[in-house]
Design a protein around this nucleic acid. Structure first.
Lengths: 202, 202
DNA sequence: TGGTTTAGTTATCAATCGATTACTTAGAGA
DNA sequence: TCTCTAAGTAATCGATTGATAACTAAACCA
């Protein structure tokens, strides 16, 4: 009688997706350089060399992570756009779609880490392209004016920053943190708090 | 006859400041983990062990960098506050003071890198404290309403992001980048472009 | 059922990096 | 001018980490 759980294998595409999910949170927490392939492997439940083999390099893994994140974000925006007969205004639907991305804690954060690495030749290029892709979507598909897009993006960057700062943890202790969060997440505070409460431990 | 330049020594406080300046740009470009003490040393013109000896650890060096950056930012805000008989509105003076911090390219960027490392125990704590210090200054000293502070900070985080993305480099090539930057830096575009043009090479 | 593909692992290496130790010397003061 | 403090360097080490190589075995298929 063996105590080990019988080894079941996945299709590599399925395993890739699991690793991408794990890597999203690891990169979100530690950044591109700070995160290790061993951490990602442990979070995904596979060996470290297998992570490298599936993605080639750590850099490629990070690129896949941020492209997946951008895809999910654009998809969510498109979903908000498709709710044509909603009684909620479009801008508010899009903001809600953005906030909803917090259900995977590292998703917006790994993007944010990419956004501040513009000097890295490969990552910087991908980050700029991704950011401008979002800009164009909001302008061309959502029909925003450039100034409206800029304000929307600004709110998004502040949200990313506050998530990166792990501000929600001090919500109860610092009344100023509470005040700021109540401004930054109007009507969506409890949603944000519940989403960031049950994030996965690394 | 020796070809070597005669070695002149500085007082350690003076050398500290030189290293902090160099470290600000290095951390701004590569982030906390990505930057190396050897890079900082080379940029400052000293040996790598001396950087470590002056600051104890790389983490302490980073903390000193972001605290110096926050000090400079608050000082600039205070300066804008003190121009009581200006014909420019206070909010615009503060925004200009913020943009002016770009004359040291890594200053806002090293802060931004700290802001997305909230999970790091020591750095995260310092980053949250610094961010909230800015919040309180704008609310209590500048007299902003919480919502006004939030919008001001959001614009700031978008600026940090665009600087981190190195967007200015594509200003001439991508008309959408130009459009976005003209929104994000109204009336201050040429200032921003000139400041980010002559940044120091790493 | 037997063979081949493919999902995975263990072991290990080379490079990088922060830190320590031991040493050297410029320069201020008596 | 002598001396001692403080500014700085060269050499090196141990730990970490991304990547590679060699191997194992599950699962699909003819």
């Amino acid at each position: 009688m063996s105590l080990e759980t019988p080894v079941t294998r996945m299709k590599s595409d399925e395993r890739r997706e699991l690793i991408l999910q794990a890597a999203t949170d690891v990169f979100g927490a530690s950044g591109y350089v700070g995160a290790t392939t061993a951490e990602v492997a442990r979070a995904a439940g596979v060996s470290q060399p297998y992570v490298v083999r599936l993605f080639g390099t750590k850099e490629q893994l990070f690129l896949d992570v941020i492209n997946r994140a951008l895809g999910k974000l654009i998809d969510a925006f498109q979903g908000a756009l498709d709710e044509v007969d909603s009684d909620i205004a479009l801008e508010k639907r899009l903001a809600l779609a953005y906030i909803n991305q917090l259900n995977q804690h590292g998703l917006l954060l790994s993007l944010m880490h990419a956004f501040v690495l513009g000097r890295e030749p490969v990552i910087g290029h991908a980050a700029r392209a991704g950011f401008m892709q979002v800009y164009r979507f909001l302008r061309d598909d959502a029909g925003f004016e450039p100034l409206q897009v800029q304000e929307f993006l600004a709110q998004g960057m502040l949200i990313n920053t506050m998530i990166g700062l792990d501000m929600a943890d001090e919500f109860d202790d610092d009344p100023d943190v509470r005040e700021l969060m109540e401004c930054a997440f109007p009507e969506k505070l409890d949603l944000v708090r519940s989403l960031s409460a049950d994030r996965v431990a690394l």
